[in-house]
Amino acid sequence: MPMTVGPDATPDPRGVLYPARLPSFHREAAPAALDGLVRWFWIPRWQLGAGRTSRQEILPFPASNLVVASSGVSLAGPTSAASHRDLRGSGWAVGMLLRPAALSSLGHDPQTIRDTEVPVDAPDLLQAVAGAMADDDEAAGRREAVALCAAWCAEHLDRPDEDGLLANALEDLVAADRDIIRVEQLAERLGLTVRGVQRLAQRHIGLPPLAVIRRYRLQEAAQRLRADPRITIAQVAAELGYADHAHLDADFRTVLGLTPNRYRHDPDNRVVE
Results as ranks from 00 to 15, higher is better:
residue 6 G to Y: 10
residue 6 G to H: 09
residue 9 A to C: 06
residue 12 D to Y: 12
residue 13 P to D: 10
residue 14 R to F: 11
residue 14 R to V: 08
residue 15 G to N: 03
residue 17 L to W: 04
residue 19 P to C: 01
residue 22 L to W: 00
residue 22 L to A: 02
residue 22 L to S: 00
residue 22 L to C: 02
residue 23 P to C: 06
residue 27 R to E: 14
residue 28 E to N: 09
residue 33 A to Y: 04
residue 33 A to T: 10
residue 33 A to I: 09
residue 34 L to I: 04
residue 36 G to E: 02
residue 36 G to L: 03
residue 37 L to F: 08
residue 38 V to E: 00
residue 38 V to S: 01
residue 39 R to V: 14
residue 45 R to F: 07
residue 46 W to L: 04
residue 48 L to C: 06
residue 51 G to M: 01
residue 53 T to L: 11
residue 54 S to G: 10
residue 55 R to G: 10
residue 56 Q to R: 13
residue 56 Q to I: 15
residue 58 I to S: 03
residue 60 P to L: 08
residue 60 P to T: 08
residue 61 F to P: 15
residue 61 F to V: 15
residue 62 P to C: 02
residue 64 S to H: 07
residue 65 N to H: 15
residue 66 L to T: 08
residue 66 L to D: 08
residue 70 S to H: 14
residue 70 S to I: 08
residue 73 V to K: 00
residue 74 S to H: 10
residue 78 P to F: 03
residue 79 T to V: 15
residue 79 T to Y: 13
residue 82 A to W: 09
residue 83 S to G: 15
residue 85 R to F: 13
residue 85 R to A: 13
residue 86 D to A: 07
residue 86 D to E: 10
residue 87 L to P: 09
residue 87 L to F: 10
residue 87 L to W: 09
residue 88 R to V: 14
residue 89 G to V: 05
residue 89 G to K: 07
residue 90 S to L: 07
residue 90 S to H: 13
residue 91 G to V: 07
residue 94 V to H: 02
residue 94 V to K: 04
residue 96 M to N: 09
residue 97 L to T: 15
residue 98 L to S: 03
residue 98 L to D: 07
residue 99 R to S: 14
residue 101 A to R: 09
residue 102 A to C: 06
residue 103 L to W: 03
residue 106 L to R: 00
residue 106 L to N: 02
residue 106 L to Y: 00
residue 108 H to T: 10
residue 110 P to I: 02
residue 110 P to F: 00
residue 110 P to V: 03
residue 114 R to I: 02
residue 115 D to W: 04
residue 116 T to L: 09
residue 118 V to G: 01
residue 118 V to Y: 00
residue 121 D to E: 14
residue 122 A to N: 01
residue 122 A to T: 01
residue 125 L to K: 04
residue 126 L to Y: 02
residue 129 V to W: 00
residue 129 V to H: 00
residue 129 V to I: 13
residue 130 A to W: 05
residue 131 G to Y: 04
residue 132 A to D: 04
residue 132 A to R: 02
residue 133 M to V: 06
residue 133 M to K: 03
